[in-house]
Design a protein around this nucleic acid. Structure first.
Lengths: 98, 98
DNA sequence: AAGATAACTTTGTAATACAAAGCTTGGAAG
DNA sequence: CTTCCAAGCTTTGTATTACAAAGTTATCTT
């Protein structure tokens, strides 16, 4: 049976799960790209990003490049936490497909 | 990219996801078995079950069998909603493993 | 009748998602 | 320089909801 206790609550929430998935597919995403891809409000997006950042799962890079532009990327900790999370998802899929 | 919009919110919540997964593996579960397996409080468990029932995803059968015993099972709708949900999980796993 | 257990219901608290609107900073255009 | 705009962030408010704990009802056992 899947190990539901290991379903990291911070990652599991829909908005943050979306963010984490995107961050896992590319090295770095700008705030604008995330916002466009996920169609979230500024406030909601940044709150989720901050939550993930506070937990050490996401790194924030601010650079000024034409316009000010902030980029977000997974930390090592974030990457492994996400892989761990995915492991539980796999268990669920496996159990649910039976 | 995964279709996050299709992540049914009712199913996605951790407690209900656990329930749905268990219900998908066996035809029917008694209230007591669910409670033992998930170590949830009575109130919390029944609230989740009622939420799922109201949405038509879970069927409730009350029988009196030695002690009163209520059983819960997926409806057809519940089964297909869950499969749809699992399809999104698979997309997430696939995207996240890259 | 008394007790025990299943299955609820009720109540209260704390967390949190989300939108909307405002603020701030930096660059570009006049 | 100042006006404008967009990026990023903060604040505020609302509404939802998870969850625990305690109380209630109904049914079976002794």
């Amino acid at each position: 049976m899947p190990d539901f206790d290991k379903l990291d609550k911070a990652i599991h929430e829909k908005g943050r799960l979306s963010i984490m998935t995107l961050l896992a597919t590319r090295m770095a995403w700008s705030f604008q790209d995330l916002k466009a891809e996920l169609s979230m409000s500024d406030g909601n997006l940044i709150t989720h990003l901050r939550t993930l950042h506070k937990l050490g799962l996401v790194a924030v890079t601010k650079e000024i490049r034409d316009r000010p532009q902030t980029s977000y990327a997974l930390t090592e900790k974030g990457r492994s936490a996400f892989q761990e999370y995915l492991r539980v998802l796999e268990q669920i899929v496996k159990a649910g497909r039976k």
